[in-house]
Amino acid sequence: MTGSNNNIYMPFKAVIEEAIDMGCNVKFFKVIPIPPHPPLSKGGRGGFIDYIPGQFFMVSQWGAGEAPISVTSTRGLQRHIEFAIKKVGAVTTVLHKLKKSDTIWLRGPYGNGFNADAAKKRDVVFIAGGIGIVPLRSLINFIQMHKKQYGKIFLLYGAKNPSEILFKEDLKAWNKKGIEITLTVDVKDESWKGNTGVVTGHLDRVKTDFKNACSYICGPDIMIEKTMKELTSRGMPDRQIITTLEARMKCGIGKCGQCYHGIEYICTNGPVYTYEEIKKRRVYGP
């Protein structure tokens, strides 16, 4: 193990505490990290890794490879690191086969994470599309924990169909704690009595002063783009529209170049950006 402490590519082990199939190709993992010595952060006590909402880990299984996965847990609320992983590629397919007490390997946390300060003393509007709820869950819980510092909290969450709505337990709990939740689906079935259509169509339900509110968006590219435009047209300043982007990443630490986009390495400068930054970034094209 020569120089392992200095090797930024060296993953550490984590044991799966819980693995729950959430349906629609998403699996929920609760993992206990066994970080190397000394622990990555000074603040972290043994067995804890310090991270903030919106960050991601490079999760790997030997033989399959690494994939960037956002955390969905919140430090201080959940004891363990939680991931909700959708089966989309080779690595995630292998990860889906894992069960309780299996070992996975982590590197991280990486990325800038959400800037929760931007929303301080403001109303907060969370807008999630599909799997985009995963990183937002971490932030929603974080803001909920410190809710005295924030205004009203709204959540607009759109899914493809009712069965693809994730974290139903959390939604109930948030509702009880006073978060105003609007759910919508693209395709409804018999059981569904709620809203249909895209999330942007339901922004009217968010009763807030958009000029002073702060919004966090996560979802598919098209949905993000549409929502950002819609929010701007309602008067929300660009720097209060915050989103998280997706890119192919291999290192997570700004070296491999795969996520390079404009002038930024999404893995280190991002993945969280304000609309203002995104606009600036695109001056030169891709």
Binding site: I8, S41, P109, G113, G254, Y265, T268
Partner: peptide, 14 residues
């Protein structure tokens, strides 16, 4: 690293 998180954790290897 240039991310705000890493600026807060200056001891992180890069």
């Amino acid at each position: 690293f240039e991310s705000s998180y890493d600026l807060a954790h200056p001891n992180r290897k890069s």
